[in-house]
Nucleic acid binder design. Structure first.
Length: 485
RNA sequence: GGCGACGUAGCCAAGUGGAUAAGGCAUGGGUCUGCAAAACCCUGAUCGCCGGUUCGAAUCCGGCCGUCGCCUCCA
């Protein structure tokens, strides 16, 4: 089987071939750390997390770099996002950066997103950016005007190849500032002169200033991954101008291909007042922070929701969509948990081994789906099909053997936990073993009460546990199962 | 105006030329249960509309209608 990836650069699905066999260098555009992450960010970074986990599960040695933008990202007012936030909260820019960087990792950690191998900050790589700008000027691809340096888009014939924009066809000037000192409206800033009130400033050959937004990714990708690397990812909303500018400046500077495969993630949408989906974004005020969502649902539910849609497509969010995803996820996690509980006392036999064939089929479907441009929705659906079989087996084969149950558990761990990250590797308790033990005691006491037909006591125990999100399931011939959700 | 997408059952969402159109949620019926919110079984769509290509199309082409994204900060 070969891994097929849809490459946005060529707009087609193609076999994946890394530059160096077995090794993948990958860069993903990270967030601008000036506020808490919302579910739109979660969609992008969970999607790439699943991709990275799958590549690693497939045996690739992945070097994953994801930047943190902490300077140079301007609002349309020309104001730096970080500086604006700093002024609003009467703090230093780097305090803002630190606060929201920590918040971002806190959220991503909670969502089970594996940390990037390197998380370079733009402000920590100003010399590298200056060097790249200098090289671009030397090669005639950039020019300086009064302390500002611009990339000359007409000097690079490849400009527009990712987003399919042709500068001649753009309606030049329609939205351009009248006083611009650019030679061409599409020319973009590599370095900007700092006005006196702009406190994030560095010395450069062109005076005191700060780097433009796009150059950080080019400079940091080159530093850590080399001039040419395998995969570049990001959100589709940054295809133009950001990604386009990255390609132009990198390839013009290095005389080498930039990234070979471009993977761009569809946006998270949310219905507007008329029910039409619009992009979740800060400015529209229709966002839902990761922290808000995590207060209501286990992280695996959020991942499962994200995985119900293909990474390239937009997905529409609503609280109902999230809770619907939760219902299905609960059924699966229940199967996993019951398997683990039975495993504790299972006999040494291969009773119930009919399901081994199902496991084999599930694995085949799962990997085929993930090999087809990381089709997580189909991969997840194979786990749901599997779950139905597991739940049926758990009930129909009371004395299922240890090796069989272990095979089920292994399959869930391999696909559900390690690749998709939707199956918790333990219960959702803070102290899993101790709390599980206490519940087993209560279940035992309740079983005795039921035997005495003391339903008042048995229901008291059940209700008490239910109030703590612990549900009980009585069976005809194998006692009571419990689950925490 | 330019560029790019999307429109599949009540809702979310796979599938991009071929045999019964994945999966999740919800609905209805059933099994099990002392009861029960669980679990299992059964239950639904001919794929926005029109035309074309083809032995054959949800899947390709054209037109129309509707929606969204980017072009200005956004993952």
């Amino acid at each position: 089987m070969t891994l097929q990836i849809y490459n946005m650069l060529h707009r087609e699905k193609m076999p994946f071939e890394p530059i160096n066999e077995g090794k993948i260098n990958m860069y993903v555009c990270g967030p601008t750390v000036y506020d808490h992450a919302h579910l739109g960010h979660a969609k992008t970074y969970v999607s790439f997390d699943i991709i990275v986990r799958y590549l690693r599960a497939r045996g690739y040695d992945v070097l994953y770099v994801q930047n943190l933008t902490d300077v140079g990202h301007l609002l349309d007012t020309g104001e730096d996002r970080i500086l604006k936030k700093a002024r609003q909260s009467a703090s230093l820019p780097m305090q803002i950066v630190e606060t929201y960087t920590r918040s971002y990792f806190e959220d991503m950690d909670a969502l089970g997103v594996a940390r990037p191998d390197i998380s370079p900050r733009a402000s920590g790589h100003v010399p590298e950016q200056i060097e790249m700008v200098r090289q671009l000027i030397d090669k005639g691809h950039a020019y300086e005007v009064d302390g500002n340096v611009y990339f000359d888009v007409r000097s690079w014939e490849g400009y527009g190849k990712l987003s399919n924009r042709q500068i001649e066809k753009q309606e030049a000037g329609s939205r351009e500032e009248v006083r611009s000192d650019k030679r061409h409206p599409d020319d973009f800033a590599l370095w900007k002169r700092a006005e006196p009130e702009h406190i994030m400033r560095w010395d450069s050959p062109w005076g005191v200033g700060f780097p433009g937004w796009h150059i950080e990714c080019s400079a940091m990708a080159r530093k850590y991954l080399g001039e040419t690397f395998d995969i570049h990812g990001g959100g589709i909303d940054n295809i133009f101008p950001h990604n386009e500018c990255e390609i132009a400046q990198s390839e013009a500077c290095n005389d080498a291909e930039f990234a070979r495969y471009w993977l761009l993630v569809g946006s998270l949408m949310v219905p507007d007042e008329f029910g039409n989906p619009v992009k979740m974004s800060k400015s529209l005020g229709n966002f839902y922070t990761v922290k808000d969502a995590l207060a209501l649902h286990p992280p695996q539910v959020i991942r499962a929701f994200i995985a119900t849609g293909h990474y390239r497509k937009p997905i529409t969010f609503s609280e109902k969509a999230l809770s619907d995803a939760r219902q299905g996820w609960e059924r699966m996690f229940t199967a996993v948990h019951f398997t683990r509980e039975k495993l504790r006392t299972a006999p040494e036999s291969d009773e119930g081994n009919g399901i081994l064939e199902t496991i084999k089929q599930t694995r085949t479907q799962f990997y085929a789906a993930m090999d087809d441009d990381f089709n997580a929705p189909v991969a997840l659906s194979s786990l749901y099909d599997f779950t139905r079989e597991v739940n049926a087996m758990i009930r129909n084969v009371p004395d299922a053997g240890k090796s069989v149950l272990q095979a089920i558990e292994d399959a869930y761990t391999e696909m559900g936990t390690e690749v998709l990250g939707v199956v918790p590797d333990t219960t959702l308790f803070a102290n899993p073993e101790r709390e599980a033990d206490l519940i087993r005691l209560l279940v035992e006491i309740r079983a005795n009460a039921r035997e005495d037909r003391n339903f008042a006591l048995s229901d008291q125990i059940r209700d008490h546990l239910a109030e703590r999100n612990i549900s009980l399931l009585d069976t005809a011939n194998q006692g009571t199962f419990w689950q925490v959700l």
